[in-house]
Design a protein around this nucleic acid. Structure first.
Lengths: 209, 209
DNA sequence: CAACAATCTTACCGCAAAGTCAAACAAGCT
DNA sequence: AGCTTGTTTGACTTTGCGGTAAGATTGTTG
């Protein structure tokens, strides 16, 4: 969004350059805001709070971001990126349709529960302003379509039993997305653990007899 | 919450009494607010809007309700009531643990997709004020506990394969709760249809081989 | 009708939070 | 040092919304 153009510093790779510092601080801001949005919701999170947590004042945030909306939007984009990463990984490493589906599920959960993925908001979709919401909705629909195509593929190759692809996608996308409501990084279940249980449940749900 | 005591009108059963009118309007208010909360979120829904939709002004709402919080709280209570109704039904009509679980799932979905259940918020948990949140959380935990006990029961009687009960509950409670994000009463899939697909998926996920 | 209660309205208060602006401070470059 | 650009701040404006007060309106009852 905010682009800066600068000549590289002489201290290559020694200290972070200005651009890198800028990017670093900006993602720190996004990360912290995402955490807050997930916990208390978009409208109940004030930028004053976010700023205080980061040890600065609110106007400082506006140097890195034009809007509160922009923060929410970019968080959604980042979260969706993880979905695509998981998808690509699964398509590359899986054989049958079922294997691919299960792999997406496992990989995606691992990603969103990792440190990087703590940015995954996904809820607060309604808080997006119409224009941004349209963008996010489009990407989401595309993703879910690729997804249900994996299911039809699995039905064709015999690895998945007869089932409504669209509903099935809703089913376990829901199971996964709802994680944001209960998952705690310091809980008694690791991200990998959850990924195992969930992908196992999914596999049995789809497997023929 | 708001209790009124009045002597019954002489026109028994002919026209709604004052108390009935009061209750009728109050639930209409709750219903409409729930719809708005679900669509736009708690903090982004103004009582002015809700009032306008109902054809009155904001202060009129405060005659039926003490707080915006109270509205949210009661919506959560009502939604949870449906869960308990579904549970009781399932325990009565199911034989094995798996049958019961599947029945809860089916019945619950049927309920929340029915006209009555359009009140089901369930999201916006974070918007509850601490005291109310504690109450709702307690009820939710109790429900999920009864639920996972059904699973252990099913494992014992051989109708359910080995699986982590708590995680399994999270899994399909998520699948169901997420429905609020995509279900539309005028969509191409009826509540019963969804209930069938989802309970079928659940059954296969739990059934031993 | 008169009196009283139930219901709803207009007008308002207070406050929190998004966003702005000019000025202060910091860092690099010549 | 002194100029220039990057970064942060304190102080402020504005707006929308939750909630309240006092009175108007309607309905009920003796």
């Amino acid at each position: 969004m905010a682009q800066r153009g600068r000549k590289p510093s002489a201290w290559k790779n020694v200290a972070p350059s200005r651009d890198q510092l800028f990017a670093l601080k900006r993602t720190a801001l996004l990360r912290e805001a995402a955490r807050a949005f997930s916990a208390r919701g978009y409208h109940d999170t004030s930028l004053d709070d976010v700023a205080k947590t980061l040890g600065v004042t609110k106007p400082a945030l506006y140097y890195y971001v034009t809007n509160k909306q922009e923060i929410l939007f970019e968080c959604h984009m980042l979260a969706q990126d993880l979905g695509n990463v998981a998808y690509d990984y699964a398509v590359e490493h899986g054989e049958t349709g079922r294997e691919k589906i299960v792999l997406v599920c496992r990989r995606y959960i691992e990603l969103i529960t990792s440190e990087i993925g703590s940015c995954a908001v996904l809820s607060e979709f309604a808080a997006l302003e119409p224009k941004n919401r349209a963008v996010i909705a489009k990407r989401r629909d595309d993703f879910q379509k690729k997804f249900s195509e994996l299911i039809t593929e699995g039905i064709k190759d015999g690895s998945i039993r007869e089932a409504d692809p669209r509903m099935t996608v809703f089913f376990f996308m829901g199971a996964i997305n709802w994680m944001t409501q209960w998952f705690r990084p310091d809980g008694d279940m690791s991200g990998e653990g959850i990924a195992s249980v969930f992908s196992d449940l999914l596999e049995h749900a789809l497997k023929p007899q």
